[in-house]
Every structure is written in structure tokens, then in C-alpha cells.
């Protein structure tokens, strides 16, 4: 389920030095490019982070940018921007290297998917594999090797 949640063109690696907002926009745009959201989804993510701070930096080096379900979401899905130059967001879990974006069409259909995602990210060694991956195909393989429920 996880592997399918990452559409074509939803994974990218940035070697540039980006600001937090640039990185955020780049990551959310991967959802746009892979057909999961409309461009205005970024405005909604931005509004949420401006109001509440970088609360979606949920683990050391890992962020999951998202906003509430809205008409800007076309299909539930994930994207991942890997930052080879980690970025400071203002969170205690800085700097961010794995900047996921997530969108859901409603508040029900994604629960199982997020459960699977939590399982995957809590599996010892998984995060390190992602941090050490240097090619998009390699990242996709790591995300697909999530066979344990």
C-alpha cells in the first residue's frame, strides 16, 4: 500500500542548500507533480505551519508536511524530498533530511495507510537505509520493501 501511495515523480533528492520554506514547497510540489493535489495545497500546508510551527517534524530528521483534507486534494498520497543538505525548521528534531509530504482526500481512507507508514518508519534500520540512499530508485525500493505488517 505504501509503495502505491508514492506516485510517479513523487520522490526526489535535492543536493542544493534550501531554506525551510523552499524545501517545504519543493516537497509539497512533488504531490502536485504526481497528480495527488492541486497547487494550492501548498498554501494550506504553509498556513498550518505558520499557525502551529513545524510540529510535523515528528522524529529526528524526519518531517511529514500535511494539511487537513480539502478540495485541493485529488488523491490520497505521499511524496518524499530527501535533502542531502539537511535544513533547519525550528523544531527540536532539526535538521530535517527526510521531508515527506502527505495528503488525504478525507479523514478516514488514509488511516490504514498511515498505520503502515508508522510501522515502516518504526522498523529499526529503515530510517538509516533511507538516509543512506543516494538514488531515487534506491529510495523507491526501500519504501517498497515494507512487507511486514
Amino acid at each position: 500500500m505504501i509503495a502505491k501511495a508514492f506516485g510517479p515523480s513523487s520522490i526526489d533528492i535535492s543536493t542544493e542548500k534550501l531554506s525551510w520554506l523552499e524545501a517545504l514547497e519543493r516537497s509539497v510540489n512533488l504531490l502536485v507533480e504526481s497528480g495527488r493535489t492541486k497547487p494550492e495545497y501548498f498554501e494550506q500546508v504553509l498556513a498550518s505551519t505558520q499557525k502551529l510551527g513545524p510540529y510535523f517534524v515528528v522524529a529526528p530528521g524526519i518531517a511529514i508536511a500535511h494539511a487537513a483534507p480539502s478540495s485541493a486534494v485529488l488523491e490520497t498520497g505521499f511524496a518524499l524530498l530527501k535533502l542531502e543538505k539537511p535544513v533547519a525548521s525550528g523544531s527540536i528534531n532539526d535538521p530535517v533530511s527526510l521531508l515527506f509530504s502527505f495528503a488525504s482526500v478525507d479523514s478516514e481512507s488514509h488511516i490504514e495507510l498511515l498505520g503502515e507508514f508508522a510501522n515502516m518508519m518504526s522498523t529499526p534500520g529503515k530510517v538509516n537505509l533511507l538516509l543512506n540512499a543516494s538514488a531515487i530508485g534506491e529510495i523507491r525500493d526501500i519504501l517498497s520493501e515494507n512487507l511486514v505488517g
Binding site: S104, N119, S122
Partner: peptide
């Protein structure tokens, strides 16, 4: 708990249930 109750909190719930 999270901002919208649909992302971070769902991930957190999943791991709380497991623990």
C-alpha cells in the same frame, strides 16, 4: 493530538496501540 487530527496524530495512535 495534532493540528488537524489527520496526520501526525494518526501515526502516533498507530504506535501507541502497538505499545
Amino acid at each position: 493530538v495534532c493540528g488537524a487530527g489527520i496526520g501526525t496524530s494518526v501515526l502516533l495512535k498507530s504506535n501507541i496501540d502497538k505499545v
